[in-house]
């Protein structure tokens, strides 16, 4: 394949221009580091707290992944129950919609008060609570919209409900599942940071951000934001990789 210069250099040049403009703006306005950070200050800010970045970054990452893992298990189970039973769907759907409508920032203090001091548990719980909804809904819709002919082909041979689920319904739902998992990964990440920022003495990058904010240390705040973006992108591409492996068949071949 030919190396595509345009695909690589155009975005790089655009990003460089943006950073230059940002740098110039801070210099031109004469903003100090407690008012705004310039791009050139970010790397030194990172180096000053390098050990903390890695330690807290890991905490944020594993809490998010743990919450997401629970979401996958619980969300898939809920989706299965709702997708396979009309009655359970009618019973659970309004509850889920109602729960999902609650702004999750308001749940943080409730959880913090219920499980005082258990930061790891609280954070993982929050990451789970905020992210299971799209998974449950997509699995439920995937299962309930299965065309009856797909079922009949195996049912007419005397296959059990489980066999139909395992051989047809589950794999057929995978593309929707991974679509939802991409959304859920981003949401779980928000949940983790919500807890880390709002509750005192939490750890993780959210906590580092919070202490930077207390000191009006803009370079550190922006450095944390960029570290969070990198973690988020990493998480997203982990999901994309899993999708390629397990649901690659759903991708249209070009041409």
């Amino acid at each position: 394949m030919r190396f595509n210069w345009q695909k690589v250099f155009v975005p790089l040049i655009a990003m460089a221009l943006l950073l230059l403009f940002w740098e110039w703006l801070v210099w031109y306005k004469g903003w100090r580091s407690f008012q705004m950070a310039a791009p050139s200050q970010l790397w030194p800010a990172y180096q000053r707290h390098e050990a903390l970045f890695w330690q807290y970054g890991w905490q944020t990452l594993w809490r998010t992944m743990a919450g997401l893992a629970i979401s996958v298990v619980v969300g898939t189970l809920l989706g299965m129950i709702m997708g396979l039973s009309r009655i359970m769907n009618d019973a659970l759907y309004p509850i889920l919609v109602g729960f999902n409508a609650i702004p999750k920032a308001t749940v943080v203090p409730v959880i913090a008060l219920m499980f005082i001091g258990q930061h790891d548990f609280n954070t993982v719980l929050m990451a789970f609570l905020i992210s299971f909804f799209p998974i449950a809904v997509s699995v439920a819709i995937g299962l309930s919209t299965l065309e009856p002919e797909y079922r009949d082909i195996l049912r007419s041979l005397g296959a059990s409900r489980f066999t139909v689920f395992w051989k047809i319904a589950l794999p057929k739902t995978l593309p929707e599942f991974f679509g939802a998992l991409k959304v859920a990964a981003t949401l779980a990440f928000i949940g983790t940071n919500l807890v880390e920022i709002i509750t005192p003495h939490g750890r993780g990058l959210g906590h580092l951000f919070q202490s930077a904010q207390t000191n009006s240390d803009f370079p550190l705040m922006f450095a944390v934001l960029i570290a969070l973006a990198i973690l988020g992108i990493f998480l997203y591409y982990v999901v994309v990789m899993l999708e390629r492996i397990f649901a690659g068949w759903a991708e249209r071949q070009p041409g």
Partner: peptide, 11 residues
């Protein structure tokens, strides 16, 4: 059985 929709499994 065979139907109007061939219902082949894409994966």
């Amino acid at each position: 059985m065979a139907f109007q929709n061939p219902v082949l499994l894409e994966w």
